[in-house]
Design a protein around this nucleic acid. Structure first.
Length: 497
RNA sequence: GCCGCUAUGGUGUAAGUGGUUAACACGCCGCCCUCUCAAGGCGGAGAGUACGGGUUCGAGUCCCGUUAGCGGUACCA
């Protein structure tokens, strides 16, 4: 099979799985599924200082929750250490790389950006200098190394010429060799560096298509140089537009924190398919108007040609409790909650209720029908499954607060003190506690008392749920049942006034 | 500084090889439904395609320049 497809997602475990990473993983996964290929997960943990097992765990969890399990892996880049060194050794022997005895510069992490800029400026002013060790005879260099001298290994980048490749998203790319410095392959303490490790691993794993963030677009030329030095055929490259924070600011794990972490969405009640759908649309479009797409539809329609070249803003508002994340993501999640079957939705809601300590086991057995009916009653007004546990508390528990605004709006009228308990009496005496029977009882009662039915209905809603908004009043009564309805109506009398 | 990428309403995106008044979704506003809030239905405001030049009978679409944002420029990944 000539066109076998093998792709990989290669996160570094220096943080949780954030939106950018998740989107990259998703596109690789879609590409693999689309072409009947293999999706591989490789953890790039060469920077041991900043990597941690918890982060690896977090990434794995996030991917699993999104349904993006790898076909192969997870592999850990650090375990291929020897292969990376061997590749560098080979390039050294072939004269394509050299030992650099320049002492390592100390730098502290907070000022790297400044340092890079400063150094670059200085270099521009002074004119580029060749590395003095580039042409040192290999035998002599080897002697010095064996004598215990520390040296980094650098790739010998050709002095003249242009690096070119055809990006599957961005089209033809080129970069002059003179703009690429002799990159370090192996640090002087012996650790292989990113660019070398990636290439060696991608070769070893038979990666055919490298799909990753646009932040690697110019770095790709460096990696191509390594492929060429190693004498290996190039994979195809496809770079993805970056995801930005509101205001086209760059997305930063440190600054934006949880709102860009996939696990946050799991914890706050997102449906995995909904988030996948939303993520897919961030930087990609199948063309045309369709936006709600199942996994199968996404796979069917996915193509790198549909990937956008410009970066996309992920429009979250962390400080706004109502719209803490992108409104469209929230809308899409709501859309999924409405469209999915109750059998699919119920366990997800149950999970949230358990988390909030208001779950009752009978809702999974004898009360399953009631439970399904109740979430069905509520689903069209909620946007996440967590809303069932927070906004929906009065429907699942007797321990809920009366919202002051609702009390003020619906229980202000002094007459209600008498009317609510009067209504409770009526409801206690009707034969069958059904939607229609309760409604006619309430309407008859309000007519007798000479008040508008609406007054009683709205008051009853607040009496029963502590809220001013919610499903139709008689539906609420049905879901609460006669006993609770009467109890809550009587109890509410004390809030009147 | 240098190299590179990008640029369509507030946000996400449409608009095969340039061809009528720039389309859809989210959000926003209004109306209908109605016991409230959603959902649903209907309607509306909001961009003349970053800016400036070209090419062309005709440009969001091609070319050049400017600006802005972003990425890279590390013995980070």
């Amino acid at each position: 099979m000539a066109d076998i497809v093998r792709v990989r997602f290669a996160p570094s475990p220096t943080g949780y799985l954030h939106f950018g990473g998740a989107r990259t993983a998703l596109f690789n996964w879609l590409f693999a599924r689309k072409h009947n290929g293999t999706f591989i997960l490789r953890i790039e943990d060469t920077d041991v200082q900043r990597s941690s097992v918890e982060m690896v765990q977090g990434i794995l969890e996030g991917m699993h929750w999104l349904g993006l399990d790898a076909d192969e892996g997870p592999f850990f880049q650090s375990s291929f250490d020897e292969e990376h060194r061997a590749a560098a050794r080979r390039l050294l022997e072939e004269g394509q790389a050299y030992y650099d005895f320049t002492p390592k510069q100390q730098k502290d992490d907070t000022t790297v950006q400044e340092m890079i800029a400063h150094r670059a400026r200085a270099q521009a002013a002074a004119g580029k200098e060749r590395n003095p060790y580039r042409d040192l005879a290999y035998e002599e260099a080897l002697r010095r190394v064996e004598a215990g001298e520390q040296a980094a290994i650098r790739l010998k980048v050709p002095e003249e010429g242009v690096s070119r490749f055809e990006d599957m998203v961005y089209g033809p790319q080129e970069r002059d060799y003179s703009d690429i410095e002799d990159l370090v392959l192996i640090r002087s303490d012996g650790y292989p560096l990113y660019n070398l490790s990636v290439v060696v691993d991608d070769i070893a794993m038979g990666i055919t298509h490298v799909i990753r963030g646009q932040d690697h677009l110019t770095n790709t030329h460096k990696q191509i140089l390594i492929y060429e030095a190693l004498g290996v055929e190039l994979p195809r490259f496809g770079h993805l537009p970056l995801i930005m924070a509101p205001g086209r600011e760059k997305l930063s794990k440190r600054k934006h924190g949880e709102v860009v972490s996939v696990t946050t969405y799991r914890d706050r009640g997102f449906i995995p398919d909904a988030l996948v759908n939303f993520l897919a649309l961030l930087g990609w479009s199948p063309g045309g108007d369709q936006e709600i797409m199942s996994r199968d539809e996404l796979i069917e329609k996915f193509s790198l040609e549909g990937v956008n070249k410009s970066s996309a803003v992920f429009n979250f508002h962390e400080s706004d409790p109502q719209n803490w994340t992108d409104p469209k993501a929230l809308w899409m999640n709501a859309e999924y909650m409405r469209a999915m079957t109750l059998d699919e939705l119920a366990p997800l809601v149950a999970e949230q209720l358990k988390k909030f300590g208001i779950w009752r086991d009978e809702w999974a057995s004898s009360g399953a029908a009631w439970f399904a009916g109740t979430i069905d009653l509520l689903r069209s007004r909620y946007r996440t499954t967590q809303d069932f546990a927070t906004l929906g508390l009065p429907y699942f528990s007797d321990e809920f607060e009366y919202e002051p605004a609702a009390v003020k709006k619906n229980l202000k009228d002094e007459r209600l003190k008498r009317l609510l308990s009067g209504l409770a009496d009526r409801l206690a005496s009707i034969e069958e506690f059904t939607h229609d029977a309760t409604e006619s009882a309430l309407r008859a009662y309000s007519e007798e008392e000479g008040v508008k039915a609406g007054l009683l209905i709205n008051a009853a809603r607040t009496a029963l749920t502590g809220q001013a908004v919610g499903p139709g009043m008689f539906d609420i009564m049905m879901t609460l049942g006669r006993e609770r309805t009467i109890l809550r109506l009587r109890r509410a009398a004390e809030f009147v006034g």
